[in-house]
Computed example of a mutant assay.
Amino acid sequence: MATSATQDHISVNRSGKGAAPGASDSSLPLVEETHRVAPQDARRLSKLFFERLSVLEEGTAEYQYARNTLIEMNLSLVRYVARRFRSRGQEMEDILQVGTIGLIKAIDRFDVLLENEFTTFAIPYITGEIKRFFRDTTWSVHVPRRLQELRVDLARAREELEERGIPEPSVADYAAHLELGEDEVIEGLVACNGYDAGSIDRPIEAGGGDKQQTGLVADLIGDEDPALALAEDLQALKPHLAQLDDRERTLLELRFGAEMTQSEIGKELGLSQMHVSRLLSGAYATLRSRLLAET
């Protein structure tokens, strides 16, 4: 008999009353509000449903009723396992959905003849499915599985080393603790950077009790300064400019320093615009050839 906490939600089929919809000869209880079935009742009822499921033909209405009821009654196992992963930064709803897949796999593969406790059988399936979800979908950058597993070992090693009084373990500390080569530890530490990626559009908050948005991470990312390339070019030109004659240097100074046009330079120096153009072209060619000779 069910306990008083759940008796109101379970009715045993007798003479066809309370049978599962579409089942002509059901010997299963009709479980209403399966989410309110107590764990101890869920274990007892699960055994009954598994025994019946093993002899039912797959695809029949009674088979589907038994299987669906088993899933719903044992969702508490999924919630129990999912709580272990609530600090992983993923939505609990997603974790519960993945854990439910593990529960369904356990139900489909459970053999009641082996007389194992279903809870003991199902929890590894649920846990494995959730861990696979984190391993395969939460890495921002895809890395080999061995490095994904090494990340877990490094995290555990850090906790153990901190307990021993080493707050910031070195590569050598990790290597000695895990009995690995330092190169492998370095590779694992680098791979850890691919686990989580933050958006460059996330706000930067000021310290202190009252956090205020002061900008975005993107604002801190440097960009190429075009003036830097110009400064490098000028430094490369300096020794070659010194080798030009006075008139060529004057022309370049008026053209680029004073930003005068060729007509204005011609009036300033008493030369025609055509003559100024030829002189500037000659100076450009001289500087270009000397710079190319350097490179």
Rank of each mutant, 00 (worst) to 15 (best):
P169I: 08
G59S: 06
W139A: 05
R109T: 13
S263I: 10
I71H: 07
I200P: 01
A42H: 05
L291A: 04
R135Q: 11
L279A: 07
V152H: 11
Q212A: 13
D245Y: 08
T60D: 06
E149R: 11
R202I: 11
H9L: 12
F110C: 07
E184C: 00
I126C: 07
I104W: 01
F50N: 06
L237F: 06
M92A: 09
T6N: 04
L178E: 04
L53T: 02
G207K: 09
M260C: 03
A283F: 03
F110I: 08
V31H: 07
S15F: 11
L244P: 04
A285S: 14
V276E: 06
L114C: 06
R255G: 06
E268P: 00
T3N: 13
I104C: 09
G22V: 03
Q243H: 06
R290A: 15
Q64P: 00
T60H: 03
S140E: 06
R202Q: 14
V55D: 10
E163L: 12
S87L: 11
S170Y: 01
N193M: 11
A227N: 09
A19C: 09
E187G: 02
S24Y: 02
T119E: 15
E162F: 00
A175L: 07
E91T: 00
Q90W: 00
R202H: 10
E51L: 12
G194L: 07
D223G: 10
L70V: 09
S281F: 01
F49E: 03
A285D: 13
A38H: 10
M274V: 11
V78A: 09
A20S: 05
E160K: 15
A19F: 00
V152P: 00
G222Y: 01
L216E: 12
S15T: 03
T286Q: 03
P226E: 10
I166P: 02
Q64S: 15
S140M: 06
A293I: 01
V171N: 13
L287D: 02
G208S: 06
S289R: 14
A5G: 01
S263Y: 05
G266L: 07
L292G: 02
R255F: 03
E115N: 14
M92W: 00
I101A: 04
L96W: 04
S24A: 11
T6C: 15
G208R: 10
R288W: 02
S263H: 07
N193W: 05
R88V: 01
L180T: 01
E32R: 13
V81T: 12
E248Q: 15
D41S: 11
N13T: 15
E248N: 07
D41L: 10
Q64T: 10
P29K: 09
V31L: 08
R44H: 08
V37N: 03
Y284T: 02
Q243M: 10
A229C: 00
F121S: 02
R164F: 01
S170Q: 05
S54Q: 11
P203G: 07
R278S: 13
D233T: 10
A66Y: 05
M92Y: 11
L178H: 07
Q213E: 15
G18Y: 12
P21W: 05
Q235M: 07
R36E: 10
L30F: 12
N74V: 09
